[in-house]
Nucleic acid binder design. Sequence first.
DNA 1: AATGAATGAGGGTTCATTCAT
DNA 2: GATGAATGAACCCTCATTCAT
Lengths: 198, 198, 198, 198
Amino acid sequence: MRADARHNRARVLEAAEVVLARDGLSASIRAIARHAGVGLGTIYRHFPTQEALYQAVIIERAQRLVAEADALTVADDPGRAFFEFFTRIVENSTRNKTLADILTRAGLDPKAGTADISRDMRDAVERLLVRAQEAGAVREDLRMPELLALLGAACMAAERNQWDDELRTRTLTIVFDGLRPTGRHPASLLPPDFGSAP
Amino acid sequence: MRADARHNRARVLEAAEVVLARDGLSASIRAIARHAGVGLGTIYRHFPTQEALYQAVIIERAQRLVAEADALTVADDPGRAFFEFFTRIVENSTRNKTLADILTRAGLDPKAGTADISRDMRDAVERLLVRAQEAGAVREDLRMPELLALLGAACMAAERNQWDDELRTRTLTIVFDGLRPTGRHPASLLPPDFGSAP
Amino acid sequence: MRADARHNRARVLEAAEVVLARDGLSASIRAIARHAGVGLGTIYRHFPTQEALYQAVIIERAQRLVAEADALTVADDPGRAFFEFFTRIVENSTRNKTLADILTRAGLDPKAGTADISRDMRDAVERLLVRAQEAGAVREDLRMPELLALLGAACMAAERNQWDDELRTRTLTIVFDGLRPTGRHPASLLPPDFGSAP
Amino acid sequence: MRADARHNRARVLEAAEVVLARDGLSASIRAIARHAGVGLGTIYRHFPTQEALYQAVIIERAQRLVAEADALTVADDPGRAFFEFFTRIVENSTRNKTLADILTRAGLDPKAGTADISRDMRDAVERLLVRAQEAGAVREDLRMPELLALLGAACMAAERNQWDDELRTRTLTIVFDGLRPTGRHPASLLPPDFGSAP
DNA sequence: AATGAATGAGGGTTCATTCAT
DNA sequence: GATGAATGAACCCTCATTCAT
């Protein structure tokens, strides 16, 4: 591919990511073209269809996530890796309205072809989960469907309602406590001196 | 307002509720008019704008939710009331694509006027929460923002991904375990004989 | 239907006929709207699709042709009626680029539903043909497929090349001579004093 | 012109001919470039405009037709040559969507410059005609305008409606009977045993 | 000279909103 | 007051043509 074409393709993807993050899936191709500073035709040269472009954005994003998950898979502390991954994804969702979609898809079609990015995502998350469970950091009875459901739900909400740092922390604390093995609730939502508990 | 006008307004609202529940916010005004058996103009007589109509539907729906919450507030078992409310809303979300929006709004603008329905919603949920906390069924350090965030997130995901009964149960089990006071995990996601824990 | 709607529908059809006659099937909906002095939506209110509008124009035109054919069917001189019909259609084609289409269709799907206008057209032409054959004005061995082929061909060419009166007369003279029973060539293409015949 | 440029020009023309034959005048420049295995720019280097390229194709095709006509002009039987030429062209029209256009043009501008291909075409056909008339195979009063009109009409219809062998034979029988001198109708459209004529 | 990437006018179509009936 | 016909901006997409590589 020619240098300028590659450049423009990247510009389009970038713009699409920004505009999708801002407008959600109702973003218009024209808005993306405007944002990217290219003509309409340029977009259609690289992506045959609106659907294809949006898919590409999602796939790109997903690939980065998978890479991140893989990087964390080899981390020292499996539990920490698992929760950190969860946190990072949700954190990113505030800025990127496509993550929920990715996770939604990952949770949706478990029989998708092996080459599928949804499958990759599922697998990457599953590796993190299994390791965390083996390390005793996550309850044994947790299965992928509800994990993806939780991840997707958190992303959707964070994306839509623009969770700030505090809200994200507090909300995930609850979820994480639910994910830990019974009996262990190391974190409290209260500041140390809140002191209303008996 | 004339009797027939009042009647028509009700018909429109009813139809809008059904159609919005089915199609979500992408529902078209025309679809609602058709469903209501009235002309387009009739809708615009009562609601100046699509936005206004959808707001009205959401407000109406929210009022019913508030009523439901209030009914549960006087129930015998405050903990059970709290979790039942949570469950019911999420369950309904599969069929009604309005609920996530309502909760989203409730969580969003905490400084809205006192007369606002979001405020009512917040208050109703808060009453359920406080009673459940007083009864020791919900952790003390839980605050409204994260509760509404969790509720909204679950509704959004259930609506979008059409959670089935099993997925909903399993996912909410996690969340509820996170909501309970430390140390208490009465529910397990595993069938009794799963037995893989050491 | 409301009076103004009926009026506008007629205006659209009229404009479509004019524009189609001028631009052929590549006419744009926008051009028709402009010509009719109505908005785009008005056209789509009456005709769900470009295809539907063009069909409607063709059907309307065809219905008029069928009526004309029927009127001629009861004429005194069946042979004259037959040739007059042929002539008139071709004559009209100069101004109307839809006729060839109509006849094309009539020739194409002989098994179309009974209620179809193509069928009506076929039948009307066939009645004219049979009467002319019974009167000995048209050769016995002529069948519908080639008759429609000839009619369609003449219309297409007249429409496309804008046959003037003289060209039409001379060309149809040839065709008509081919249509008459063997041995009868009453017409000559030459002016009386051309005098090259033996 | 450089050798490779000349080569490419030929390739483009060839491809254009194939694609135009297949798709008619609605063929896209891109399709031709693809078929020729050259870039879009190459086409535009040799032909300033889509229109110009299509003209060139038509001229080339016409030249071959003229050659064919010329070959037949020296044939033994002038009448047979004339009718064979007519038949062949119509036959080809089913597969080649260019022919109708060529004949249309030939019939259209009788005052075009002498060097014009339309003129050549006209002349070639006229030679066939005159010889056939001199041989007594075609009526004396037939002139070029109506002959070209008939040829063009038949091609157009054959192209558009994809005349099969039988329909073409039957239709041309009529036309040819009209073209023959008065009193001679050697061919019948009926099978020998049809026997309904007196 | 050749390539194909970029452009943008223009095509069909939808839908919130206005307004004559 | 009710109706739904009319409007036109905006949407997705195609394709002839231009121009940087």
